[in-house]
Write a protein that binds this DNA or RNA. Sequence first.
DNA 1: GTCTATACGATGATAGAC
DNA 2: GTCTATCATCGTATAGAC
Lengths: 208, 208
Amino acid sequence: MQQAHTEPGPSAWDGVEPEAARRLLSAGVEAFAERGYHATTTRDIAGRAGMSPAALYIHFKTKEELLFRISKVGHERARGIIAGAAGSDGTPRERLDRAVRDFSRWHAERHTTARVVQYELQALGEEHYAEIVTLRRDIDSLLRGIIEDGVRAGDFAVDDIPGTALAVLSLCVDVARWFSAAGSRTPDELGLLYADLVGRMVTAPGRA
Amino acid sequence: MQQAHTEPGPSAWDGVEPEAARRLLSAGVEAFAERGYHATTTRDIAGRAGMSPAALYIHFKTKEELLFRISKVGHERARGIIAGAAGSDGTPRERLDRAVRDFSRWHAERHTTARVVQYELQALGEEHYAEIVTLRRDIDSLLRGIIEDGVRAGDFAVDDIPGTALAVLSLCVDVARWFSAAGSRTPDELGLLYADLVGRMVTAPGRA
DNA sequence: GTCTATACGATGATAGAC
DNA sequence: GTCTATCATCGTATAGAC
């Protein structure tokens, strides 16, 4: 049994019972993030959770259902982060700053989970995929809303609002692909850098 | 045999002989981009190329070698695009503009190839992976060089040069994940939008 | 709920005819 | 160089004991 790399803070599986299901979810995240869904065997997941392969099927109907659970919880968390920023007090610029800071930081701090959330969608079954897509649409709308508010208020100089919203999300999401805890940047530092870069994106250029 | 979706312009496999190997490379790109490397069977690849599974092994030693060939050619092309911009005449701002425009446009226009190039690295064997990593380092250095030139010349206002270079590459790379030919943006339009956004990133903010 | 044992289909790769 | 046939292995998932 391999020891899973543990990310900081409270587990995403705090509400899950029984404990064995929690261990399987955690092991699934680790394995899927490392090798990808299709390259991960149920033997590997069960082994990391300290169980036999058969035990997995007591808690999840299939391997795909395990992925779906991970994806669902992860997407809900991601939406919560953006919703928190979108619904907070402050100017559009402050809300956008907070959205980008928190969203990119989450993708860095939880890069293992985020990698599965963002890059294993295609492995979901049709119905599960459809359910996840609605969550993703929410995230997109919430962020676009902040930018629309800023443009309407005259705070942002943005020509292509949907394109800019897409670029901002894309920038944050891709953190999950390349971020490593061994790198030279902490998640906090990355959040600040990215919030600054996005702040510039929505602002008419001044002088160098 | 399924008909492969054909991307515009000359094939990336123009130099490859014999023609059957070309068909396999092309079929491999399609299949890997659609389902991912591990979910793709040699039967699927061979079927798309109009051959039996056994024929694949005449032209490639393993399925992994087929992926490596695709990845190698794709990365060389990607490096060529950035090198072309970095080595071109013009101010750092003009060179950065060209780099981002061409690089993001390539990821859009060739999103099928780019998806395999950018997202199937982990499926490569150790030695092949190491060879690809050197190409990726080149790409990173070339782009960072442009930004360094601009900062040195006083054209760019950038605090964190490696971080900004990383963000710019990341933004362009992630296009391969979400871009669809069915979407509302052409690759050309995307290139212009992204060049504008990055131009703002390296410029001290003015007023909205 | 967990284990051992195993069914059974699919997969990467090869053998040998043409 | 390509095909048909096939091998050895591995994968998901289940059966049945405890």
